[in-house]
Nucleic acid binder design. Structure first.
Lengths: 112, 112
DNA sequence: TTCCATAGTTCGGATATGTAGAACTATTGA
DNA sequence: TCAATAGTTCTACATATCCGAACTATGGAA
């Protein structure tokens, strides 16, 4: 099992962020993590929008979010704690993540 | 040749927008169209970032942008005029496109 | 310690999506 | 009618995604 790698903030690309968040499961996971002060485990998202996510898929989704620079994951005992990198990204792309998070909320709200 | 179809604004999805703009060629095309008052033809983008784009690929990219609701294309004589749908989308997802366009500009600027 | 349970990762095969050359369609102008 | 230009569609191939199964890592219990 390779060690987790996180891109440095200068290497974070807009395209990578948009790609990572262009998946409904990932944008749901990310907005949840971004809106939560305390770190979230991967398995907290075994269900997303009432849909069960296989854990290999979940692991893949977290890797995409990590590689895009959106979250930071670190092992804590048997589980993995995930936190958003919003503040760093805000410095690089001001307003981007808030706008996406807001859009996601609007869409989810209008859907219900 | 099927008639061009454009989704109505209520059917525009955040995920579709992010997916469409997660490609470096498409985000370059879109920011150009969005920043230009006058409509742009498809073939205006035969080169993007000094890279030639085959016209079948270009056509595909425009279709993705259209399907995502980001642009409106209409035939005018022998060519196609493309305009952004920013104002409509601004009403649905406020601040989203400006933030993405700004991020793209920052990234392109920092790259040079 | 050994063993088991839990949390994630990796592998591998099926399926879906993207790329681009070639053939096609639509419009205009000679 | 014919040729030129602008885009689209077809098709084959390359790449990416999905998910079950097998694997690894950590911690706690026997």
């Amino acid at each position: 099992m390779r060690p987790l790698s996180h891109p440095s903030i200068e290497d974070v690309q807009l395209e990578g962020i948009l790609h990572a968040l262009s998946d409904p499961v990932r944008v749901a996971i990310f907005t949840d993590i971004a809106g939560n002060d305390c770190a979230q485990t991967c398995s907290a998202f075994a269900q997303v929008n009432d849909k069960p996510i296989p854990k290999s898929s979940l692991s893949h989704h977290f890797k995409v979010l990590r590689d895009a620079g959106l979250i930071r994951s670190e092992r804590q005992g048997v589980e993995m704690r995930n936190i958003s990198r919003c503040p760093e990204i805000e410095g690089r792309f001001p307003g981007l993540l808030p706008a996406i998070i807001n859009a996601h909320a609007l869409q989810a709200g209008g859907k219900a």
